[in-house]
Design a binder for these strands. Structure first.
Length: 333
DNA sequence: TGTTAGACCCGCCAGG
DNA sequence: ATCCTGGCGGGTCTAA
């Protein structure tokens, strides 16, 4: 499997294979989210990628779950240094993890490993400084506290999960599944993610890589107008040309204000976001359709196949054709 | 691969 | 005073 690259509105490119998974258990471990991680990464399933799954805790100490029973990890923090993915399961006791734990998380993020937090696991990332200047989220009951504790974190309470660079944070509980499947999809492509979702008996995927833009079930705060409806419209009409001026007009804002608000909300500039979404759509069409490159370029709103190739290779570090030959959906299930 | 018109982006700043 | 808005300049990027 070649390296494949995560593309993101806000940051750039993180390249990663994904085989070694370390799950960090902190006191008051949430069992459901741990179960989701085990379900996705902890089983060997015929025809699906095999992961090297390691549950770890500080000094291999047994960890009390919020349900009262204990789990006994077999690994110490050293597996974090060897992991391609470090997943932090929720911990509800509110304590800052010991410094060696924070250091291990920082080392993992610095060397480019995927770091995924579920629900209150985000607080450990915050304590480690990994959420500074990053878009992130946590369970809606805790977003205010997260933002207060870590003022540099750009907390978005209205998404199921956020990927910013190699750091992914999720709202937890059921959103853990969305975040996990998103990561699998980024790394292994939609065929694998779809097959895995079917095995788990959850909906195959939420439209492309864009589930992070689906609003969470939290009641929208009245005083916070949002660009979400406009973004949804744009996503549904990517084959059309869009400019900052036209989008700003539709949002009833001056272009300068629109651009600023756009960056605040999505972390990306309008044009960069648009190009990212066009590439995402092109990926889907490459994976799931038999359309030619010219047709895909037109559907995704690129002016020509050459333009598609330019942006695709820039963001994915591989050509559209090579991507298709690797990730084209075949009957795996 | 190189060129070029024009779109984009962002610091700056005045005004509400 | 503090925050948000939106026009301007010009360096940068895009698309043909």
């Amino acid at each position: 499997m070649p390296h494949i690259f995560n593309i993101l509105p806000s940051v750039g490119i993180v390249g990663h294979m994904l085989t070694r998974v370390a799950v960090l258990a902190l006191p008051d471990l949430a069992v459901f989210e741990l179960g989701v991680l085990v379900e996705i990464f902890g089983y060997e399933r015929e025809g699906l990628p095999k992961y090297d799954f390691a549950l770890c805790s500080y000094r291999k100490q047994p960890v009390r779950t919020h349900a009262g029973f204990y789990v006994s990890p077999e690994h110490d923090l050293d597996v974090i240094d060897r992991a391609d993915l470090v997943a932090v399961a929720p911990s509800d006791n509110g304590q800052t993890p010991p410094e060696p734990v924070l250091e291990a998380l920082r080392r993992a993020a610095d060397r480019g490993a995927w770091v995924l937090s579920l629900c209150t696991g985000a607080f450990a990332l915050g304590a480690a400084g990994l959420l500074d200047d990053r878009r992130c989220t946590t369970h809606w009951r805790h977003t205010d506290r997260l933002a207060d504790l870590y003022p540099k974190a750009k907390v978005d309470p209205n998404v199921l999960y956020v990927a910013d660079g190699n750091v992914i944070t999720s709202a937890g509980t059921a959103a853990s599944i969305d975040a996990g499947l998103y990561l699998v999809r980024e790394v292994h492509g939609s065929a694998v993610a779809t097959a895995l979702a079917r095995r788990m008996v959850v909906p195959p995927h939420r439209d492309g890589g864009q589930a992070q833009y689906i609003e969470s079930p939290v009641a929208a705060t009245v005083e916070a107008p949002t660009l979400q409806p406009l973004l949804a419209d744009v996503l549904a009409s990517l084959d059309q040309p869009h400019t900052v001026d036209t989008l700003a007009a539709r949002a009833h804002m001056a272009p300068r204000t629109f651009a600023r608000r756009f960056r605040a909300e999505t972390g990306a500039t309008p044009h960069d976001w648009l190009t990212n979404q066009r590439v995402l759509l092109a990926r889907r069409l490459l994976e799931e359709s038999d359309l030619g490159i010219d047709a895909i370029a037109a559907r995704a709103g690129f002016g020509s196949a050459a333009t598609l190739r330019h942006h695709f290779t820039q963001r994915m570090s591989t050509t559209p054709q090579a991507y298709r030959s690797t990730f084209k959906v075949r009957s795996i299930v």
